[in-house]
């Protein structure tokens, strides 16, 4: 210790300052790495555990020397059981048809509404923005039940109901159990968490330079053309961000689908009721202490996550870069 101090005192003050700055920055890098790794562990641990558990049979749980490395493999058995219980192919199709397509519609319709709110001034703009915030704040589940009941005889502004009262003919369609239950709100830009998507769009559109658009105006382009040819091509980043969010939320949505459908459920609903399905199908009771069936359950979770993980791995490079360029200013 003394020798270190003496070496230090031999430096002139400027050198010492540089050195202490350098050592501070090294210390900081180490600290940063420790923080990142330890919180990274918290993120990776449940996933890793899930994958390891999904690979092994119930006998592995009796082996107390096993912690991280899987033993007693039963891959085929676990995955086959989960695959059958979730009706995987059918559910995947249902997810695509109900959720993914309505996510795609939502991305487009939210962009249009956000463009109107961000780029034009009009009298009711303040009111519209207030409504937008209300849609973000009001939780989906509060309006879910009335919405579902309305779906059983959909009525646009009471016109069809009036027809029903006058003529006795019920023209109101029942759109429960059809794709329309998912697509219609998305078409009108009020689908799953559309509020926050519109908000992200608005933040980005506000930052676009006006000059290009004005040039297009002068050249005689209409508003729709300006939007399609000028605004959209330069918003690739925000579209990517919104796409990722919308797709994820739709993929994971088990609430709406369990309310709107009563058969052909998408994957998210299947996974949330997997313990019950497994229990009735294979006559097992699932609990944390009883290893029987946990392998099946975790295999189901892996089957659910994997499609998203693959897509995430493909797009994460662009997604991570796009975050740097969205620039939300609030």
């Amino acid at each position: 210790m003394k020798s270190i101090i003496s070496t230090f005192s031999n430096f002139n003050s400027r050198n010492a300052q540089v050195l202490s700055k350098k050592s501070a920055s090294i210390l900081f890098s180490v600290f940063r790495l420790v923080v990142l790794l330890s919180i990274g562990f918290i993120i990776i641990y449940p996933l890793f555990y899930t994958i390891v558990t999904s690979l092994q049979s119930k006998y592995a749980f009796l082996n107390s020397t096993r912690v991280w490395i899987p033993t007693e493999f039963a891959i085929a058995e676990n995955y086959k059981a989960a695959f059958d219980a979730m009706e995987y192919v059918k559910s995947l199709w249902s997810t695509f048809k109900n959720e993914i397509i309505s996510a795609t519609i939502e991305i487009a319709s939210c962009a249009i509404a956000a463009y109107g709110l961000a780029r034009f001034d009009f009298k009711l703009k303040k009111l519209y923005t207030a409504i937008l915030f209300l849609t973000i704040l009001v939780p989906e589940m509060l309006i879910l039940i009335p919405r579902m009941l309305n779906y059983s005889h959909l009525d646009l502004f009471g016109i069809l109901g009036l027809v029903n009262k006058v003529t006795g003919v019920d023209l109101r369609p029942n759109i429960l159990n059809t794709v329309a239950a998912f697509w219609l709100p998305s078409i009108f830009g009020v689908g799953l968490r559309s509020g926050i998507l519109i908000y992200i769009y608005i933040q980005f559109f506000k930052g676009l330079p006006y000059e290009l658009e004005e040039a297009a105006w002068v050249d005689g382009a209409g508003p729709l053309k300006t939007f399609l040819a000028i605004a959209l091509p330069s918003s690739g980043v925000v579209i990517l961000t919104v796409t990722v969010f919308s797709m994820i939320w739709h993929w994971n949505d088990s609430l709406l689908s369990s309310m709107y459908l009563n058969q052909d459920f998408p994957l998210a609903t299947q996974i949330s009721r997997l313990p019950q399905t497994l229990g009735s199908k294979y006559h097992i009771i699932l609990s944390a202490r009883d290893p029987q069936g946990i392998g099946y359950l975790m295999a189901g979770c892996v089957l659910f996550i994997v499609p998203m993980l693959i897509i995430y791995m493909i797009i994460q490079r662009w997604f991570i870069e796009s975050i740097d360029r969205v620039g939300i200013t609030g």
Binding site: T50, T53, W251, D253, A268, I271, S272, L297
Partner: peptide, 11 residues
């Protein structure tokens, strides 16, 4: 999603 509830409970 719902999957995280399952994972957290089991792990």
């Amino acid at each position: 999603g719902a999957v995280i509830n399952l994972i957290f409970k089991t792990t």
